[in-house]
Design a protein around this nucleic acid. Structure first.
Lengths: 205, 205
DNA sequence: CTTTCAAAGTAGACAGCGTCAACTGTTCTG
DNA sequence: CAGAACAGTTGACGCTGTCTACTTTGAAAG
C-alpha cells in the first residue's frame, strides 16, 4: 500500500510541478490539463483522478507558491532588533518577488481562482499575510513610543508598499520606460528609507 | 464613403465595448471572439476583419483603459499648493482603481498582451505613466526642501505605494482576511498619512 | 449608368481544449 | 477468494481560435 500511495502521490505531484513549468514557458492562459498529461506521460483523463478540473490544479499550484513564499519569509535570521528585522522582512519580500517572478505573479498578479472555492489555498495566503502582520505587531510592541499605533493599519501600509514596489519593479511596461538603470537601482533603497521614516513618524490624531 | 467608414467603425467599436463587458461578466479567461461576434450579431469570422486575433482585440481594450485612465488623471483641478495637489493626485489614482476595478485590473493586474507586440497599447501605457511621473516630479521640485532630493526616486516610491494600495485594497484575498470593515476604512487614510510623513522626513545621507 | 474591385461579412473545416461517461486493470479489504 | 475502491484509458461532446474559400456590398473609375 505504501507503494500505491507513493505512486499516486507521484502523479499528483508531477502534475503540479509540470503545470508550473508550463505556465513559465507558455503562460498561464496556455496551461492545459491535456498538455500536463502529455508531458507526464499519461492519458488526457488521468489528471482528473487527482484534480477535479483545471482550476483545482491551478489552485494547488498557487497554494504551493504561497507555501514557498511563507517559508522564504520565515527562514531569515532574526536579530531581535525590531527595526532591523522589519527591514530584513521587507528585503525578503522584495527579493522573493524579484527572484521568483513567475510564482509571485501567480499569487498576486493574475486573477486567482476564487478563494472562496479553494479554502486550502486561501489559508496559505492568509498565513503568509499573518507573518507580515505579526512581525509588525511585534515591532510596535517593542517600539511602543506610539501607544495607539494600530499594527494592522501599518501592516497594511507596509504590505501594500512592498507589493507595489515588487509589482512595479518587474512590470513589463517598466522595462520600456525611459528610466536609467542606475536610477532604478537606487529606487528600492530609497523607498525603503522612506518607509522607515514613515513608520518612525508620529502621526497626528 | 462616410457611411461605410462609420459602419465599419461601428463593428470594430462594438466589438471592443462588448469584449470589455464580457470580461466584466465572465472574466478575462472566458473572453472569446465567437461570443463577441454572437453578441454583436455577426458571424463568428466577422471580427477577424477588424482584429487579427484574440490578443489584438484584447490589446485594443487595454489601450482604451489606459486612455480613460490618462484622461481621468488629467481632469483634476489643481490648487497650486504642491502638497495639496499631490494628495489630490493620489486620491485620483486610488479612486480610479476602486471605481473601475475591471479596467484597472486589465491594465495592471493581469498578464498583458506582450507590450512589444502592441506598440499602440504600450504608448498609451507610457503616456499614463508620464502623466503621473511628470506631476510628481513637478510637485517634488516645488516641494523639496531637501537639496539632494531626487524627484524621480520619490515619484517612483509614491507611484509604487499608490499602486500597491489600489491592488491590495481590491484583491480578492483581502475580503477574506480577518480584517474588520471599519479597520479597512481607516487603512487608506492611514496609509496616506504615512506617505505624507515619509515625504516630509529628512533622509540620512 | 455600368463595370470593377477591394473591403466586409458568411460558411465550413480543422485541431486543440475541458469535461462527461464508460470501460479496464490493479490493489487493498472483508 | 469475492468484491469494492481506485488509477488509468478510450471515446465522445461542444466549445474555442483560426485557416480557407465563398458571397455581398458599396464606392469609385470608365
Amino acid at each position: 500500500m505504501a507503494k500505491k500511495s507513493t505512486k499516486t502521490r507521484n502523479l499528483r505531484e508531477d502534475c503540479i510541478v509540470e503545470a508550473l513549468s508550463i505556465i513559465g514557458e507558455d503562460g498561464l492562459e496556455n496551461l492545459s490539463l491535456r498538455e500536463v498529461a502529455r508531458r507526464v506521460g499519461v492519458s488526457h483523463q488521468a489528471p482528473y483522478k487527482h484534480f477535479e478540473n483545471r482550476e483545482h490544479l491551478l489552485a494547488e499550484v498557487v497554494g504551493r507558491c504561497f507555501d514557498a513564499f511563507s517559508k522564504h519569509l520565515h527562514t531569515r535570521k532574526l536579530t531581535g532588533d525590531p527595526t532591523e528585522d522589519l527591514a530584513s522582512l521587507g528585503n525578503a519580500y522584495i527579493r522573493y518577488a524579484l527572484n521568483h517572478p513567475l510564482e509571485y505573479r501567480l499569487m498576486f498578479g493574475t486573477s486567482l481562482p476564487d478563494p472562496d472555492k479553494y479554502p486550502a489555498m486561501l489559508e496559505k495566503a492568509q498565513y503568509a499575510y499573518a507573518i507580515l502582520r505579526d512581525m509588525l505587531t511585534q515591532l510596535f510592541a517593542a517600539n511602543s513610543r506610539q501607544k495607539g499605533a494600530d499594527a494592522d493599519l501599518d501592516a497594511f501600509f507596509v504590505w501594500a508598499t512592498m507589493h507595489g514596489l515588487a509589482t512595479v519593479l518587474k512590470s513589463p511596461s517598466l522595462a520600456t520606460l525611459p528610466v536609467t538603470p542606475s536610477k532604478l537601482g537606487k529606487a528600492l533603497p530609497h523607498a525603503f528609507q522612506r518607509v522607515r521614516a514613515a513608520l518612525k513618524a508620529d502621526l497626528p490624531a
